[in-house]
Computed example of a mutant assay.
Amino acid sequence: MTPDQIKLVQNSFREVVPIKTAAAALFYEKLFAIDGSLKALFRTTDMSNQGAKLMAALGFVVHGLSRAETVLPTVQDLARRHVGYGVIRSSARR
């Protein structure tokens, strides 16, 4: 990403932060509308807590875009943990 693109993403995310609870709820609503079978991965999950975790992870990544080399190991670890939760790569691109 270029410095200008990073700045645009970071500025856009700042606009989301005040509505982060609603944004996370909307994300999961859309996710489950796209693929209802994914609900099974969250059947015992407190979705309010899950939404907070999502927004915290996004915030971490967005704020680290200008130093991706320091963020990437954490994101890779998060991806590995999600494989353990049963997440698989979709062959369909939507």
Results as ranks from 00 to 15, higher is better:
residue 1 M to P: 12
residue 1 M to R: 10
residue 1 M to E: 09
residue 2 T to C: 04
residue 2 T to K: 10
residue 3 P to V: 00
residue 4 D to V: 11
residue 5 Q to G: 06
residue 7 K to C: 09
residue 7 K to H: 12
residue 9 V to L: 09
residue 9 V to D: 02
residue 10 Q to S: 06
residue 12 S to A: 15
residue 12 S to V: 06
residue 13 F to M: 01
residue 15 E to S: 11
residue 16 V to G: 09
residue 16 V to I: 15
residue 16 V to R: 06
residue 16 V to W: 07
residue 18 P to Q: 12
residue 20 K to G: 11
residue 20 K to M: 15
residue 21 T to Q: 13
residue 22 A to L: 08
residue 23 A to F: 15
residue 24 A to D: 08
residue 25 A to F: 13
residue 25 A to K: 15
residue 25 A to E: 15
residue 26 L to N: 15
residue 26 L to I: 12
residue 28 Y to K: 09
residue 30 K to W: 03
residue 30 K to D: 05
residue 30 K to L: 08
residue 31 L to W: 07
residue 31 L to G: 04
residue 32 F to C: 04
residue 35 D to I: 01
residue 35 D to E: 12
residue 36 G to E: 13
residue 41 L to Y: 01
residue 45 T to S: 10
residue 46 D to G: 11
residue 47 M to H: 11
residue 48 S to Q: 11
residue 48 S to T: 15
residue 49 N to H: 14
residue 49 N to Q: 15
residue 49 N to R: 15
residue 50 Q to V: 12
residue 51 G to E: 02
residue 51 G to N: 10
residue 52 A to G: 12
residue 52 A to T: 09
residue 52 A to Y: 08
residue 52 A to D: 12
residue 52 A to V: 07
residue 54 L to C: 13
residue 55 M to A: 10
residue 56 A to N: 08
residue 58 L to W: 04
residue 59 G to P: 05
residue 59 G to K: 11
residue 61 V to H: 00
residue 62 V to W: 07
residue 65 L to F: 00
residue 67 R to L: 07
residue 67 R to Q: 10
residue 68 A to Q: 05
residue 68 A to I: 10
residue 69 E to P: 01
residue 69 E to F: 03
residue 70 T to A: 06
residue 71 V to S: 02
residue 71 V to W: 03
residue 72 L to T: 11
residue 72 L to I: 08
residue 72 L to H: 05
residue 72 L to R: 07
residue 73 P to M: 03
residue 74 T to S: 07
residue 74 T to L: 08
residue 76 Q to T: 04
residue 76 Q to L: 08
residue 77 D to G: 11
residue 78 L to Y: 02
residue 80 R to G: 05
residue 81 R to K: 10
residue 82 H to M: 05
residue 84 G to E: 04
residue 84 G to A: 00
residue 84 G to I: 01
residue 85 Y to N: 05
residue 85 Y to V: 02
residue 86 G to R: 00
residue 87 V to N: 03
residue 87 V to W: 00
residue 87 V to D: 01
residue 87 V to S: 02
residue 87 V to L: 03
residue 89 R to C: 05
residue 90 S to Q: 13
residue 93 R to Y: 00
